[in-house]
Design a protein around this nucleic acid. Structure first.
Lengths: 306, 306
DNA sequence: CGTAATGATAGGAAAATTCAATTTTTGCCA
DNA sequence: TGGCAAAAATTGAATTTTCCTATCATTACG
């Protein structure tokens, strides 16, 4: 008679992911007993033990793992169902949850958000900023609808759309008076350390890969959590950094910083959207892509890159 | 936050299928207001109108149709999830819902059920007897797990497994003293009307197709709802009929009935199981197939077909 | 108009879910 | 072994949800 409930499945999904009754309950914004009871009820309904309770929290049984997999799928589809209903009305109306990587969000959003608010007043955009790996998890679990990150990302269940190319430029202290394109040499790097973001940022990896390609070692990598910090250091003559062009306008205001183009072929990243292939919001997502492109073009227009 | 409930979806699914609040409520074993309220709640949660209420009941809106489709899919998967848990323990344990066509059920079940009860005491078999078309719907909607019917049936979402061949024999009044194989001729059919089951039984269609193949017209087709009725008439000399061999032992007990083999190539049907490709019970279903084959062989051993 | 069919609404009862507080279980370590 | 601490289960009361009966509102049709 199908007596289980979506709530039970949500609790179980949280428990399966987190492996701890108390913390899973917290993640669901309910008390531990509430979650415990629902899990027990689910086990009764299914006639199978799903988790082993032990000193170190909850561990899924074999059956539990199978069920957890189906549960995730079911919850994704339930999400889709709700989204699908919301997508029924106008384009870009209702709630849309967008994830953006930290090396893009602060530069794109100031242009994108006002534009969206004006063009699609019925859109309720939820923005989440984290690193690619976490965003990928969340897209896959239908906790966000679409993410903006650096492509390419190969994933069987995700679809992607490239939006624009974002070149990397060199930000150095103002005493560098070089004209024209710059060559990144080992020699130079020794004099002027390269400051990079902390681990986990894909931009950091891309920068390191570029250095490796240019046969220069990129040690001495501070590990800041934002360009703002790094640029403060650059302005104070503590080193230089690679900066995505999209960030130039915002981060290189100071007269103490000199923005230099790199020799051809210039390094760059391709930014694009990713979403679950089965997402019912594809129409909205394509409209969003359009909006982002417009915002980016406006942004590029103001750039003071030479 | 995913605030809809499976119950709402069940009610909506019933409403979508039935198109009438009162009767849908009845089908869900709740009162009409209960269903109405849940549908309203669902519409609120989704932020979309799903049904047009009118004088002639409820009609789905365009959005409603899309949602109904997703709802069906979701409910199917929820069913699968529950089944999948029940399938975890022993083979053929837990509830298994089997649909059988009426021209098979009464002959196979008396042998099959005791055998299953003995071999798989933990199996809780629910048997449903109806015609192929209805069974197909129910298999597809995951309201039954597997069906036994005459193959071939082509359906993208269903898998099938042929179990055994069931020949057709001729059941005629005892005054027919013919020895050996019989040829079904137009001439004969004029003297002795062919009695058939009512519309909807696939066996009726198969019988008619055989007659057409043999170039004899098969009008005068009473339309009984069971072989029992037909055989009573045959025994009283009111005509003859085609009978599946599986039914011979049960239906041709009377000395007033003569069972005659037909000339080669003998007509027959292939009986087999059908189930949804994604059903989590395939292991159980294959065990069931085994059991049915055994039951059928026992049955064939007792047959008094010449 | 009245009527019959259909869905919506109201009010109270029953069931479920939840929370805070407490107890039991479990594994660990002295 | 016995105490300790973390984790989950249980308890009991409060809250929320769901349901039912009875009634109302709307609509189309004779």
């Amino acid at each position: 008679m199908l007596t289980i409930t979506l709530r039970q499945l949500q609790y179980f999904d949280a428990l399966a992911r987190i492996g701890h009754f108390g913390r899973a309950a917290e993640a669901c914004f309910v008390s531990q007993p509430a979650l415990t009871v629902q899990i027990q009820e689910l086990e009764n309904q299914l006639g199978a033990r799903l988790v082993e309770r032990g000193r170190r929290g909850a561990v899924l049984t074999e059956a539990g793992q199978r069920i957890a997999e189906r549960t995730r799928k079911l919850l994704r589809e339930a999400e889709d169902l709700v989204q699908s209903a919301q997508a029924s009305s106008a384009p870009l109306a209702g709630r849309l949850r967008l994830g953006i990587i930290p090396t893009v969000a602060p530069y794109l959003l100031p242009t994108l958000l006002p534009f969206l608010r004006q063009t699609y007043p019925d859109l309720e955009l939820h923005v989440r900023e984290t690193q690619t790996a976490i965003l990928l998890d969340e897209v896959e679990a239908a906790r966000i609808d679409v993410m903006l990150a650096a492509l390419p990302i190969a994933h069987p269940d995700l679809e992607s759309l490239a939006l624009f190319e974002d070149r990397f430029v060199l930000a150095a202290p103002h005493h560098h008076e070089t004209e024209g394109r710059v060559v990144l040499s080992e020699d130079w790097l020794r004099r002027e350390p390269l400051l990079l973001l902390e681990e986990g940022h894909c931009f950091r990896d891309q920068a390191i890969r570029y250095c490796a390609l240019r046969q220069v070692s990129s040690h001495n990598t501070l590990g800041a959590s934002s360009f703002a910090t790094i640029m403060r250091m650059v302005a104070n003559g503590l080193g230089m950094t690679l900066l995505p062009e999209i960030a130039v306008t915002a981060e290189a205001r100071s007269e103490d910083i000199r923005i230099l183009r790199l020799e051809e072929p210039e390094p760059s990243r391709v930014l694009g959207l990713l979403w679950r292939r089965e997402s019912p919001r594809t129409a909205d997502i394509r409209a969003l892509a359009e909006a982002i492109s417009i915002a980016q073009q406006a942004l590029a227009g103001w750039s003071r890159v030479p």
